[in-house]
């Protein structure tokens, strides 16, 4: 696609702008900011990726992954700001997910150890893990606040912190992972995944595109479940002190 053709696609930005203006929706400013940011960010990433792919150096690949983890942490931590030490818990989770998935992919020779494979797959894994982290933290903090009485009841009867928070933890893990599992049930019927569509448009063999998409879907299942469970089990102990007393959540966006 040429830059001229790309510029014509801006008509898809004009449509919401005109509608917003006509109906006084007030979305013009945010739409323009989002458009400009996406153009700059994606073009910058495109050039950076081109350089990293050409250089094919371990350091650059690592730096790219660290950058993704940093950005994902920055984005997700706001939803768990009321949980003590959430930044480190997110970093540890994202690193673990990355090491686990790439360890399996590279260790079993499923994908080649090149930047062209490692970076896009890492992006999808960390991005999905970030979304799952946000979903989990959102639900978990809300469950904790709603069920404070139940938590204290179990503690008062001689239950441990793990027993006292068990129901809220399980409900949050389930609620955050269900969308991933459910969307996979209808994939291919309702929607064609973005990566697969992109490959097909770029001229790849549809069957091969499907094979890669399946690989990603399976990866995302692991990512979803492991992220929620790990964040949950890293987070709940900080809700209690050494005397097994339930601590109030810090004030923060939740």
């Amino acid at each position: 696609m040429s830059y001229l053709t790309l510029s014509i696609t801006l008509v898809f930005v004009l449509i919401p702008l005109v509608l917003s203006k006509t109906l006084n929706l007030g979305l013009e400013k945010d739409t323009i900011i989002a458009t400009v940011r996406s153009i700059i960010q994606l073009l910058a990433v495109g050039y950076v990726l081109q350089y990293v792919f050409d250089a094919e150096h371990f350091i650059f690949i690592t730096l790219m992954i660290l950058l993704m983890i940093g950005a994902a942490t920055q984005n997700a931590r706001r939803k768990g700001a009321s949980i003590k030490g959430i930044t480190w818990k997110l970093i540890v989770t994202f690193i673990f997910i990355e090491v686990l998935t790439q360890g399996i992919l590279l260790g079993l020779n499923i994908t080649p150890p090149t930047a062209q494979y490692i970076i896009p797959i890492s992006g999808m894994v960390i991005g999905n893990s970030m979304v799952l982290g946000i979903l989990f933290l959102n639900r978990f903090t809300s469950e904790i606040e709603t069920h404070q009485d139940e938590t204290e009841l179990i503690l008062s009867l001689g239950g441990t912190p793990k027993q006292a928070i068990h129901n809220q933890l399980i409900a949050s893990i389930k609620a955050s992972t269900i969308p991933t599992i459910e969307s996979q049930k209808t994939i291919g019927l309702v929607q064609l995944p973005g990566m697969m569509s992109g490959q097909i448009i770029a001229g790849a063999d549809p069957v091969q595109a499907v094979q890669f998409q399946l690989l990603i879907l399976f990866l995302l299942l692991t990512t979803a479940v492991v992220t929620s469970i790990m964040l949950g089990f890293l987070s709940y102990p900080t809700l209690f002190n050494e005397r097994m007393q339930f601590l109030k959540l810090k004030d923060g966006e939740s």
Partner: peptide, 9 residues
């Protein structure tokens, strides 16, 4: 704490 809470209901 667990022993205490079982004895002090």
């Amino acid at each position: 704490p667990v022993e205490l809470r079982r004895n002090v209901g």
